[in-house]
Simulated assay, not measured.
Amino acid sequence: MIPVDNSLITEIIHQFSVQSSWELLAASLGILYVVLAAKESAWCWPAAFASTVIYTVLFWEGQLPMQALLNFYYMGMAVYGFILWRGVNNTENIIAITSRPLKFHIMYITAGLVISFLIGYYLDSFPETQLPYLDAFVMVFSVMTTVLMARKVIENWLYWIVIDSFAIALYWQTGFYATIVMFTVYLVLAAYGYLNWKKLHAV
């Protein structure tokens, strides 16, 4: 029989109880955002805005400065994405789903890794910062990939699968257990979003 770490289970239950209905609300709104985005609905962006307002505060208090900064950035991108997807005259699907060539993705990944390393190296000089390189990686690629989402680049979903996997590792080690549940759901929804957008792109 595989031994069960009762102390870990107790800690998870404790974190769910004390860590807040705020985190649960933010996670729920985050899931709603991805569901609506996968359906190509512009109303995903108001849900994202509300979720990121809450997460900006939570991550700042949890000493994850890059995640707090990332969610502050998301607030602005939520406004940008809503305007872009709705269009000036509220015409739906103004921005068409598109794809990018391999050369673009090679440059994209290389730039993201270099920037992540530089930011992680800087953050590592602050002893109070947790997991600086992982924090930086998740932040940098999330920033870059949110732009791809707003511009309806279909490969954004593939990047989110990778980002969400690393984010789960980050939040597991820093105690944001409700957020782990959200990002696990994100993994499934990212696969759904890619397949659905691919179908829509082929129409």
Rank of each mutant, 00 (worst) to 15 (best):
V79D: 13
F49K: 06
E92A: 15
Y171I: 05
L8K: 15
S41W: 08
V53Y: 09
V18M: 13
L102R: 13
A167M: 08
S51Q: 11
L32D: 05
A167E: 10
T10W: 05
W45H: 11
E23A: 09
E61A: 02
N71W: 01
T98D: 14
V18F: 05
A96S: 13
W85F: 07
M1Q: 10
Y192Q: 07
L118K: 10
M149P: 01
M1W: 08
A111Y: 00
V35C: 08
A167T: 13
S20V: 09
G120P: 04
E61L: 14
A48F: 02
T174V: 12
G30R: 02
V53Q: 01
L25K: 05
N156D: 13
Y171Q: 08
Q67N: 13
A50H: 00
Y121I: 00
Q130Y: 00
A38V: 01
N196S: 14
G76I: 11
S165H: 05
K152L: 00
T146P: 09
I168T: 04
S21L: 12
F16S: 03
G193E: 03
A26V: 01
N71G: 03
S20A: 10
W43C: 00
L32W: 06
F166D: 04
I83F: 12
A50E: 09
A190Y: 03
L148I: 07
T10N: 15
S41R: 14
L64R: 01
G30M: 04
I9Q: 09
Y108R: 15
D5S: 12
E128W: 02
A68F: 01
I106T: 12
P127D: 09
I109H: 12
D5Q: 11
A37P: 04
I54R: 08
T10F: 00
Y73N: 09
W160C: 06
L158G: 05
W197H: 06
L170T: 06
A37D: 02
G175Q: 09
A178P: 05
M182G: 06
I109N: 09
F117E: 09
A111S: 15
V4A: 12
F166V: 14
M66C: 15
A191D: 05
T56P: 03
A37G: 11
I13E: 15
Y171L: 13
M149F: 11
V185Y: 04
K103V: 13
F166T: 08
A191K: 06
M182H: 05
Q19N: 15
P132G: 07
Y122H: 09
I119D: 06
F59H: 03
N93E: 13
A50F: 11
T110S: 15
I180V: 15
M1C: 00
G120C: 09
L36M: 14
I163N: 04
I106L: 15
N90H: 15
L36C: 07
R151D: 10
Q67F: 00
S125Q: 14
V114D: 10
T56Q: 04
S99T: 14
V188G: 11
